[in-house]
């Protein structure tokens, strides 16, 4: 069982703030899904390599060529707050 405290901690890690009712709902849903997921424990996976990708590819590289990229203007165009071509965020240092 996941406690309310754990739900709060996970929300914090995920950068979410949950209302009281969301918290209860999330706790209930997480417990329901994790209960189901606990069934996986009965599967013997000793020495089984975990799958990272369904089609294994290794060392995908390409030549390091200079190509045209996005202009600075286009790159910041969607910024919620942009000043002089930079993304503006709340002050992070005193």
């Amino acid at each position: 069982m996941i406690s309310k405290e754990q739900v709060k901690r996970v929300a914090d890690l995920a950068r979410l703030v949950l209302t009281e009712s969301e918290m209860l709902q999330q706790q209930q849903d997480l417990n329901q899904i994790l209960d189901a997921a606990d069934r996986l424990k009965s599967v013997n996976t000793t020495d089984i390599e975990p799958t990272a990708h369904a089609i294994p590819l290794t060392n995908v590289t390409r030549d390091d060529l200079v190509v045209e990229g996005l202009s600075k203007n286009d790159a910041v165009k969607n910024g919620p707050e942009v000043t002089k071509g930079y993304f503006k965020v709340p002050q992070i240092m005193e």
Binding site: L40, K41, V43, I48
Partner: peptide, 15 residues
């Protein structure tokens, strides 16, 4: 290990 890695191992068995 209990959830993510375990699931990835089960995924290998399914493949």
């Amino acid at each position: 290990d209990a959830y993510y890695k375990k699931a990835q191992q089960v995924r290998t068995l399914m493949r």
